[in-house]
Amino acid sequence: MKIDEWIQKNTFHHSAFEDLDKLVKEKEKQNLKISLCIPTLNEEKTIGKEIVLFNSELVTRYPLLDEIAVIDSGSTDNTLEVAQSFGADTYLASDILSDLDNKKGKGENLWKAIYQLEGDIIVYIDADIKNIHPRFVYGLLAPLIYNKKTKYVKAFYDRPLAFSEGIRPSGGGRVTEILIRPLFSLFFPELSAIIQPLSGEYAVSREVLEKLSFPIGYGVETAHLLDIYREYGMDAFAQTDLDQRVHRNQETISLGKMSFGILQTFLNRMKSYGMMTDIPELSTMLRQFQAHDDVFESIEQEIIEEERPPMITIPEYLEKRGNK
């Protein structure tokens, strides 16, 4: 399929799915269960609003969601208490599949959600979105519910910059435009049709999720796209414009760490796909600099992109799902 044709057929605006009565009816017709997972680490300022809005609009008013769960990496603030006070199911990631060795990272929370939550579809929403709105959930779920070929729906956002004459650049953040898009364009040109490959909001069907291995750190979204593309092709993807997303900006030094982790994941995938055979052992040490007056201080940080295997290979998961 040509990229332009794919974009035409698989790119939506959330407003196309505003009829929630219709969406809920279709969900019920298919007898689907849907879970919302919010991975958290110190998000006490924004988590309450997300839960209140989703509970009121997408559980009480329109029963689109069957459960809302917060999976936390060990917040030191009151994230879990706030989430509980507003009625969410809350879990510490380390308490789920607790016999396994403990790992920390957003990917770990997303992976454990597959075990803990019941939905046939899981929608993941980051907890730091200040302008949260029900569209963030229904905009991602609707393409999955209405089209059985679609397995994975990614969010993208309008990021208005100064523009004139009706043309404006629309794309991802700095890491997307400087790292991911050039890499995809070189090796997987069709995937460059995904406007914001790193956005933290997406909905995925369980049948796909349980077969994916999960980097627990920065590379999780990139790995998902590569693995699903390889297994199912572009037909499995859709993307929805959710308008603006207001969140805190990251410093460049943090984006450097993120890029380092993503590159590890990408290169490891290239190796496992047999697309690059002569890659030497990759270093896991990132060196960055910070300046104090005239002195440049070197900071070294080890970033290891560990991966969890597909959930379907975990005996406890098979037992839990098999007993149903």
Binding site: K49, V52, L53, E57, T60, H133
Partner: peptide, 14 residues
Amino acid sequence: IRDVLLTNLVMLGE
């Protein structure tokens, strides 16, 4: 009905 009121407050106020 707290969540219903707060949701309307947010969605109208934004």
